[in-house]
Design a binder for these strands. Structure first.
Lengths: 233, 233
DNA sequence: ACCTGAACACCGTTCAAGT
DNA sequence: ACCTGAACACCGTTCAAGT
C-alpha cells in the first residue's frame, strides 16, 4: 500500500471526510454545534471527542481543560453581540448593546453562570467592554466612575441572563415562576408582613420591563454617585 | 435477643453511635459539615451517603435530587446573615445587611452561583427579603419600586460573591487578577483605545470599596427611577 | 415505609505506548 | 509533536429486592 508514503495533504481530503485535522478552532466549532443542538450539559470533553471521531485525551493537546474550552465557546458566542451604532442618544445605545449582550447569554444561562466565575478576556469580550466604555465617556461619565460602572452594567446583564434565561427552550420557566408565586402568596403575614403586603407585586412585570428598569436604575445611579468619595474611606 | 422488641429510642443511642437515623435534617447537617471541610465540589450524594454510613440511593427518600439538597444547604447558610438592627440610618442598615449576606455567600461562591439559578425560598431567605423590604419602606421608597429593587440589591450582592469569592480559601485569586491585569495592559491601544486609556483603573479599588460603591449606585438609582414609567411602555 | 446493592449511563484527566 | 486506549477516580439516579 502506498497510503503511508503519500504526502500529508490528501489525508485531509479523503472520500470520507469524517475526520478533519484536530485544531483548537475545530474543537471550539464542534463545541458550538453541540451547544446549539444538545445544550451546555453535553459540551464535555468526551462528547466533543466523539463528534470529532477521536478520544477525549486527544483534545488536551489544544485545550488546557474544560474551563478553557468553555471560555473559548463563550467568546465565540459574544461575537453575536451587536455593538453600539454610531448615532443616537448614548443612553439608548447603551441600553441596546447591553440588551443584545443579555439576549445572547439568555440563550445559554449555564454559559452566563460560568462567565461570572472565569472572567472573560477574549477578543469579542474586549470589544464589548470597549464599546460600553465609549458610550459612558460620551455620556460625560468620569473615567473613574466608568471604570467601575462598566463592571456593574455587565454584571447586571449577566445575572439577568442567569436568573431568567432558560437552558432548554422547550420547557419554559412558567412552572418555576408559578411555584414561586404560590409560595409567596402562602407566606405567613404575621411573620413576613412586607412580603405579604407586596405579594404578587414582587414578581410583577415582564423580564424585559424589569431589565430595562434595572438598566435605568444603574445608569442613573452611576450618574449620581461619585466614586472618589468611596476611595477615600 | 430482645433487640428487635425494644422501643425505638435505643437505636439512636448505641455504644457505637456511628449510624444515626436518616432524616432530612441529618442529611443537610452532614452536607454542611462536608461543605465546610471539603468544599461544595464534594457535597455529592455519594459523599454524603458515605459520611452517613449508607448508600447514595438511601438519601432519595428524604431529598428529591441534588438541586433540592443544595437549596437546603443554602438556606441553612443564610441563617448566618445578620438581619438589620432596630435603629440607625436606614441606608446604612441596608448596606450592612446586604454586606452580611454577601459575606456569607463569599465563602461559598459555587453556592452563590447556584442560588441564581434556583430561586431560594427557604425561611431564612424570606427573612432576609422581609428585612430589606422593611428598610426600603423606611427609606420612603414606594412599594412598586421596592418590589423590583429588592431583587436588584440581592442580585448585586450575589453576583459580587460569585465573581470575587474564593472557593478554596487557600489559594487567593491574586494570580487570577494579576493575569487579568497583564492582559489588560497588553491590549492593543489602536483597537481598544478606551480600555488602554483606563488600564489598571478598570481593576482598581478593593472588593469592599467596589461593593459599597455599587450598593450606593443601586440605592441612589432606585431613589431616582420611577418604575411606573416602565410598566406603561 | 424505608433501606440497600448493583447497575446504568455518564464525567475529567493522566499516562504509557505508539506513530 | 501528536494521537491513542486504557485506566483511575469519580458523578446522579433508578430499580428490584430485601426488611
Amino acid at each position: 500500500m502506498t497510503l503511508n508514503t503519500l504526502p500529508k495533504v490528501p489525508s485531509s481530503r479523503r472520500e470520507r471526510p469524517a475526520k478533519p485535522a484536530l485544531t483548537r478552532a475545530g474543537i471550539v466549532d464542534a463545541a458550538l454545534t453541540i451547544l446549539a443542538e444538545e445544550g451546555l450539559g453535553r459540551v464535555t470533553m468526551r462528547r466533543i471527542a466523539t463528534a470529532l471521531d477521536t478520544g477525549a485525551a486527544s483534545l488536551y493537546v489544544y485545550v488546557r481543560n474544560t474551563e478553557d474550552l468553555h471560555a473559548q465557546v463563550l467568546d465565540a458566542l459574544l461575537g453575536g453581540v451587536e455593538l453600539p451604532p454610531e448615532d443616537g442618544p448614548w443612553r439608548e445605545r447603551l441600553a441596546d448593546v447591553l440588551t443584545s449582550y443579555m439576549a445572547v447569554l439568555f440563550q445559554h444561562p449555564a454559559m452566563a453562570r460560568m462567565s461570572m466565575s472565569t472572567h472573560p478576556s477574549g477578543a469579542n469580550y474586549l470589544g464589548l467592554l470597549e464599546g460600553i466604555l465609549g458610550l459612558l465617556r460620551e455620556g460625560g461619565i468620569p473615567d473613574t466612575d466608568a471604570a467601575w460602572g462598566v463592571d456593574l452594567l455587565l454584571s447586571f446583564a449577566t445575572v439577568t441572563a442567569v436568573e431568567h434565561g432558560h437552558e432548554d427552550p422547550l420547557e419554559a420557566d412558567a412552572d418555576d415562576l408559578s411555584a414561586l408565586a404560590k409560595q409567596l402568596s402562602a407566606v405567613d403575614a404575621g411573620a413576613f408582613p412586607h412580603i405579604a403586603r407586596l405579594g404578587a407585586d414582587l414578581l410583577s412585570g415582564t423580564g424585559e420591563q424589569r431589565f430595562q428598569w434595572g438598566l435605568d436604575v444603574l445608569i442613573t445611579g452611576i450618574l449620581h454617585t461619585d466614586r472618589t468619595f468611596f476611595q477615600e474611606i
